[in-house]
Design a protein around this nucleic acid. Structure first.
Lengths: 170, 170
DNA sequence: CACCTTTGGTAACATATGTTACTAATGGCT
DNA sequence: AGCCATTAGTAACATATGTTACCAAAGGTG
């Protein structure tokens, strides 16, 4: 009781509604839900839309690069890709140079679907950001970028922020 | 082709990595993953931790109020509450005034678990926000609050932002 | 006080997501 | 070439999450 030199804050400080990570997660959840209306109309699921949108950013892209550029593991990408292929929205071609990788590209109808959804998505973003002034928008963009950098500055291989060290050390 | 007076932006504007809602969702996903390490050590799942944290904010609270204050539907809350009760971390008592509602409160060990996790969570938040200066932190807080208001300013009963109207109108 | 409506919560089912292995293809390395 | 380590992707299983329908308790309203 006299050796009380642990973490410097008291638990009473914890108020869920003011806890930044929670607020971001909760908002992300709600945004996701709102946005899903845009692609649900096209019969797309969230991972399908993410894969579609990621492929759209290039002429062709390997599945592993989709994994590297989205918050999805390779299984999720694999599943979404398969169903997109079944729907005829993406073409999957085995790369002759390295027959392990499959090169993904949008079909004509895939690009059409993407464009219709993209228009809705941009409209949504516009409406959301209209809550901020131009300067505020720029400011938010910068702050978000800084936090992204902090978030993705990962511990060696665990792929996660190592926050326990600060607490556990004597 | 000559009547091209649709939405004012072109699809080429859509770049996933600059799409604000996506960035927020992706960051939320990563934060969630990082944070889960804090309560995984206590054997808690994400919804369990949310319920625990929400109950901790009051002496006792009805399950429906947990639903109202978290991004979870009532089924998710029900399940998490049941398992927390099984683990002896929360007490569920039927309200004698209205026997439909169950009043939830933390047990002694439940509070202990909460406090241990809360310390880790606060430490994590501190580390995350250390990427920002004090002024930046205040600024981010305000901007986030504005966006939250915009996000949760819902369409009548759908509970979602009504962004389609802007697009569909002639 | 019956009757209909609303509300809090759960059961049971369907779907989605995460995990662990496994296969196939490749790239060194000796 | 022969062998081991690595990589891309998937199958099969276990969990988790979402949906629908349901029950039991309240709250009105005639």
């Amino acid at each position: 009781m006299s050796e009380n030199c642990g973490p410097s804050f008291h638990v009473n400080e914890f108020v869920l509604s003011r806890f930044a990570p929670y607020r971001i997660v909760a908002m992300g959840h709600e945004l996701s839900r709102c946005l899903s209306r845009a692609y649900a109309g096209e019969g797309l699921t969230i991972p399908e839309w993410r894969v579609l949108a990621t492929i759209s950013q290039a002429d062709a892209i390997a599945a592993r690069d989709v994994v590297a550029n989205t918050p999805m593991d390779k299984m999720a990408v694999s599943r979404a890709t398969t169903s997109l292929e079944v729907k005829g929205l993406v073409c999957r071609v085995t790369d002759p140079k390295d027959r392990r990788v499959s090169s993904l590209s949008l079909s004509v109808s895939g690009r059409a679907v993407f464009e219709r959804v993209a228009v809705l998505a941009l409209s949504f973003e516009k409406k959301l950001l209209s809550a901020l002034s131009l300067e505020e928008r720029e400011s938010f963009d910068k702050l978000l970028a800084k936090l992204e950098r902090a978030t993705y500055t990962v511990a060696p291989e665990s792929g996660v922020l190592d926050f326990a060290t600060e607490v556990n050390k004597e």
